[in-house]
């Protein structure tokens, strides 16, 4: 009984210490928990629906949710101590105003291409890389994407040595594609941002 009582006391002390560590180091038990806490810290949201939560190489991760009618909420996360999450240093975090009709992003940490089309479900996207935003470089990259039925889509393992953004191939980066086109499953063009050049 003495050992049982001692065990209970140690367990209580462990719980208090663990809570203090989580609190003082701003660590979270889940990626989505961190995402919600981050939205609150930045005074927006809560966003309506978590669309995607991924952890990529070296513990870098990303959570994407839909926020409002024209935006996405993104938190880049970093895994700590194997099972906890912290805000990633230098990551893109916060509200991404997408604007109608669509936006496409690439996150190198998780090798993830994702985006949203307002008013349609994309089955494939065509991307044009631009070094300075003035003109897209050819040839374009073509991807079949996974749509969620509400306009959001993503592609995992997107780069796979194709060099989606060649200039930054060695860095961690978050890239917004200024020139992109999305197509429905029947091949109909849902949107093109090439006209906006």
């Amino acid at each position: 009984m003495r050992k049982l009582k001692k065990s209970a006391v140690w367990l209580a002390v462990i719980a208090v210490c663990a809570a203090l560590i989580l609190w003082s180091m701003q660590l979270y038990l889940t990626q989505t928990g961190l995402h919600r806490a981050n939205e609150r810290g930045l005074h927006y949201g809560p966003s309506e629906e978590i669309l995607l939560a991924r952890t990529g190489e070296r513990g870098h991760g990303i959570v994407v949710s839909k926020c409002g009618d024209e935006g996405l909420s993104v938190t880049e996360t970093m895994r700590r101590f194997g099972l906890l999450y912290h805000l990633d240093d230098g990551g893109i975090t916060g509200y991404l105003p997408c604007g109608a009709p669509a936006a496409v992003f690439y996150n190198s940490s998780c090798d993830l291409l994702f985006g949203i089309v307002f008013g349609g479900d994309a089955a494939s996207v065509r991307l044009y890389y631009s070094t300075d935003g003035s003109a897209p470089a050819d040839p374009p990259l073509f991807y079949d994407v996974v749509p969620d039925g509400n306009g959001f889509f993503f592609v995992e393992d997107a780069a796979l040595g194709l060099g989606l953004v060649p200039d930054h191939a060695q860095d961690r980066y978050f890239y917004w594609y200024p020139y992109a086109e999305a197509f429905a499953s029947d091949g109909t063009l849902l949107f093109t941002s090439r006209d906006a050049r």
Binding site: S7, V13, I14, C17, A18, L20, S24
Partner: peptide
């Protein structure tokens, strides 16, 4: 069982106390 449990928890507690010093 209780003996090892108590020891394990005691070691875990000591480790956490040490780990919590720097962030606190």
């Amino acid at each position: 069982f209780l003996g090892w449990l108590e020891r394990l928890l005691r070691w875990a507690m000591a480790l956490l106390i040490v780990l919590s010093v720097i962030p606190l």
